[in-house]
Simulated scan of single mutants.
Amino acid sequence: MPSEGVDETFFHQIGGHATFRRLVDTFYRGVADDPVLKPMYPEDDLGPAAERLTMFLEQYWGGPGTYSELRGHPRLRMRHTPFKVNPDARDRWLKHMRDAVDELGLPPLQEETLWAYLERAAFAMVNTFEE
């Protein structure tokens, strides 16, 4: 019989839905006051965007497949094409996400795993170098 937790996904290891909800809620509190990022969100209320990001991250890390059930394949680069994601926007996104990750207080290995993914994803979304 496997050891306790060996078959657990990263989603479960870090606390499941509650942890991802805290991460995303903290992140969007920063975005709400960001003059560069806030205009990129089509809804005045960031709630729908927060819900989409929560579902995406949960699915990516081994949680429920709700994101794909509701929205299809993530196609992150395609979904971000309408927005000018330049290095400034990327760095602002990373700053707010860094604050959110830090607030979780995860063990070092889990924090590094999560952060490495978020950082790679942010760099991959850059689609222009224009200001």
Rank of each mutant, 00 (worst) to 15 (best):
M78R: 13
V85K: 06
F11M: 05
P35W: 08
E43W: 08
E131F: 11
L53P: 01
D25W: 06
R77G: 08
R52C: 02
F10E: 00
F123E: 11
G63R: 01
F56E: 00
A49C: 07
R52D: 01
L37F: 09
W115E: 00
R29N: 10
T19H: 01
A50K: 13
Y41H: 15
P39M: 09
I14D: 00
P64C: 05
F11Q: 00
L37N: 03
T54M: 12
E112T: 08
L37S: 06
A100F: 08
R29D: 12
E119N: 12
V6Y: 09
A89T: 02
D25Q: 07
A122D: 04
E130F: 06
P107D: 11
V24E: 01
M125I: 04
A124C: 05
G65W: 03
D91H: 01
F123V: 06
W93D: 06
H80V: 01
F27I: 11
V24L: 09
E69S: 13
N86W: 02
H12W: 12
E43M: 14
S3T: 06
W61A: 04
E111Q: 15
A89G: 03
L109V: 07
P82H: 04
L109Y: 03
Y60D: 01
E103Q: 11
G5P: 05
G30Y: 10
F27M: 15
V31C: 05
F129M: 12
D91F: 05
T128N: 05
H12L: 15
E111S: 15
D33H: 15
V31F: 06
G62L: 07
L23T: 00
P108D: 06
A50E: 08
A32G: 13
E103A: 15
P87A: 02
T19L: 04
T54W: 02
E130K: 10
Y60M: 08
P39V: 04
M55I: 00
P107Q: 11
T26R: 15
A32H: 14
T9M: 03
L109N: 09
H17P: 00
G15Q: 03
E69W: 07
P48G: 04
D91N: 12
R75M: 15
V85S: 02
E58N: 00
G15W: 04
M78L: 14
F27H: 12
D99W: 06
V36N: 05
F10A: 06
S3P: 14
D34M: 12
F27S: 06
G5D: 01
R77A: 13
M55W: 10
E130Q: 10
K38I: 09
E8I: 07
V101T: 00
V6A: 13
E8Q: 14
Q13C: 12
N86M: 03
R98N: 11
S68C: 07
P64Q: 08
L114N: 04
E43R: 15
L46A: 06
E119C: 11
H17R: 13
L37W: 07
A32D: 14
H12P: 04
P48C: 10
P74S: 03
Q110H: 07
A116R: 14
G72I: 03
R79I: 00
W61T: 02
D34E: 11
D44A: 15
E4R: 13
R98V: 02
L106Q: 04
G65M: 11
P35G: 09
K38C: 09
A124R: 12
T113G: 12
L23M: 09
R21M: 13
W93P: 02
R21V: 14
F83L: 07
P108I: 05
A124S: 13
T54F: 10
V126Q: 04
K95A: 15
M125Y: 04
A50D: 01
